[in-house]
Deep mutational scan, measured.
Amino acid sequence: MAAAAAAGAGPEMVRGQVFDVGPRYTNLSYIGEGAYGMVCSAYDNVNKVRVAIKKISPFEHQTYCQRTLREIKILLRFRHENIIGINDIIRAPTIEQMKDVYIVQDLMETDLYKLLKTQHLSNDHICYFLYQILRGLKYIHSANVLHRDLKPSNLLLNTTCDLKICDFGLARVADPDHDHTGFLTEYVATRWYRAPEIMLNSKGYTKSIDIWSVGCILAEMLSNRPIFPGKHYLDQLNHILGILGSPSQEDLNCIINLKARNYLLSLPHKNKVPWNRLFPNADSKALDLLDKMLTFNPHKRIEVEQALAHPYLEQYYDPSDEPIAEAPFKFDMELDDLPKEKLKELIFEETARFQPGYRS
């Protein structure tokens, strides 16, 4: 834990890192770190609560700039109880001085990944967590956004079992017609939660990839272990087919990539493993919904509104309290091709509203 900075004593240090967030945020305490930044909790002297502050230093890398800009653009436009918001952003007053960006968010005690390492969940908890994931996802999908990296560590939890989806750095506007060349190379989302079509096709992607990830998360809540822990690309596919069985001819016809289709045709026939054999203690309604989410063919996979209306979630289902976005989200430009200098300018502009004396 960093010592509390005395008023006016300059930035606090946390594990050798400068955290320049005073005077409003003090009493910093280390939480963890990701690929390009550290997260601390801090005391907000204005709202009198502890908050989470993520320090991001992305400006050396085009990919990190892209992810940072995506996350900020999306989260500043989203407003939903099951999606983490941005409360404040701290950065230098000029673009030349801006080396880091500090993002202030609600402090959540833990995440689903940490929880599943230590606790076996009751059916009631599984049901409530799944409902909140789908409630947040309904809003995301209504904005025409794909999260693309749903996994237990991106689901934040607090002691009252509130759940918030975080990390929109890989999110995209849904565009089933656009052929994202190089899709697989830039697709760094965790393999275990990846839909089979991501490994088999490169053309376009749809909201059904997020539903697949939610199915993987439900299976993990039922058993405290990942359902498809593939060691590499082909191993991942083999794990999936080992449980779902061989795809039907109709399902194979959806695979545009001939090499991928021929690979699947070359494999020995596998039978589907019954879900109640894998999860003998699970609620039968939970397994019915799991089956509809972990469907090989993305066109037959359940959609988020149908999933919310499934009998497993009937005690929570309330369409009048499951809000959607006001308007579909649009990125003005494809960020993939922009140089990091341009992305830095866009991050600077996007964060201006939090600067003292800002006038829109």
Rank of each mutant, 00 (worst) to 15 (best):
Q62P: 15
P298G: 08
H147Y: 11
H310Y: 08
K342L: 05
R70F: 02
A219C: 07
Q132C: 00
E186V: 13
H80T: 07
I103G: 02
K164I: 15
A4E: 01
L234G: 06
Y36A: 15
H239P: 10
N158V: 07
N87A: 01
D124S: 08
P11G: 08
N154I: 15
A92S: 14
Y358F: 14
K259I: 11
L343Q: 15
L252I: 09
I243V: 08
W192G: 10
P58H: 15
P298F: 03
D175Q: 07
N224D: 05
I72K: 06
P58E: 13
A325K: 03
M98I: 15
H61M: 01
R135H: 08
E326R: 01
A143H: 01
L237M: 11
L308M: 14
N262F: 03
S57Y: 14
T185N: 12
K300L: 10
P11Y: 02
R172K: 11
L28P: 05
E197G: 00
K55W: 02
L313C: 02
A6L: 13
G32A: 10
G245A: 08
Y131K: 07
K73F: 09
I103P: 09
T63R: 14
F59T: 12
D44R: 11
Y317P: 00
D332S: 07
V273Q: 01
V273P: 00
E60C: 05
F348Q: 12
L346M: 14
R261M: 06
L156H: 03
L76G: 11
D44Y: 15
I126E: 11
A189G: 06
G204Q: 08
D149A: 15
L28A: 02
A4M: 13
H178V: 10
H239E: 09
K99N: 15
L75G: 13
N158D: 00
I209A: 08
C254R: 11
S360Q: 13
H125K: 04
V46A: 08
P319V: 12
F168W: 03
S202A: 10
I198K: 08
F329Y: 14
D283T: 02
Y187T: 05
T295N: 13
Q62D: 09
H232V: 01
L115N: 00
R359F: 07
Y358Q: 11
R194S: 15
A4R: 10
I211M: 10
K292E: 09
L69M: 14
I89R: 03
E186P: 08
T159V: 11
N47G: 12
H120W: 03
N201C: 05
V273S: 08
F78L: 14
L170M: 13
Y25F: 14
H147P: 07
K330I: 04
K164Q: 02
D321Y: 14
G204V: 15
D162T: 05
I56F: 15
R50S: 14
N257T: 14
K48V: 10
D124G: 01
S29M: 05
A219M: 01
Y43R: 06
P152H: 13
L75H: 15
V304R: 08
G10I: 11
T295M: 04
K138Q: 10
T190N: 10
S223F: 07
G245V: 13
V51D: 15
D291Q: 12
G169R: 05
T190K: 03
P11H: 15
D283R: 10
I72A: 09
P152R: 09
H147Q: 15
L237C: 12
A174C: 04
K340F: 00
E326G: 00
P196H: 13
T295K: 06
G22H: 11
L222D: 05
A35Q: 13
V18A: 07
F168H: 02
R359W: 15
N297C: 06
L308V: 10
T26C: 06
L130C: 12
N276M: 02
I140C: 09
G8K: 07
R261G: 09
L200D: 05
K54Y: 02
H232P: 10
Y131W: 01
R353V: 12
M199K: 14
V21G: 06
E71S: 14
C127V: 09
I217H: 08
G10Y: 13
S208M: 11
F279A: 07
Y43T: 09
L156N: 14
I84G: 00
L308H: 02
P176Y: 08
S29G: 09
L155C: 04
S246R: 12
Y317G: 07
K151E: 09
S248G: 02
T110N: 12
Q17Y: 02
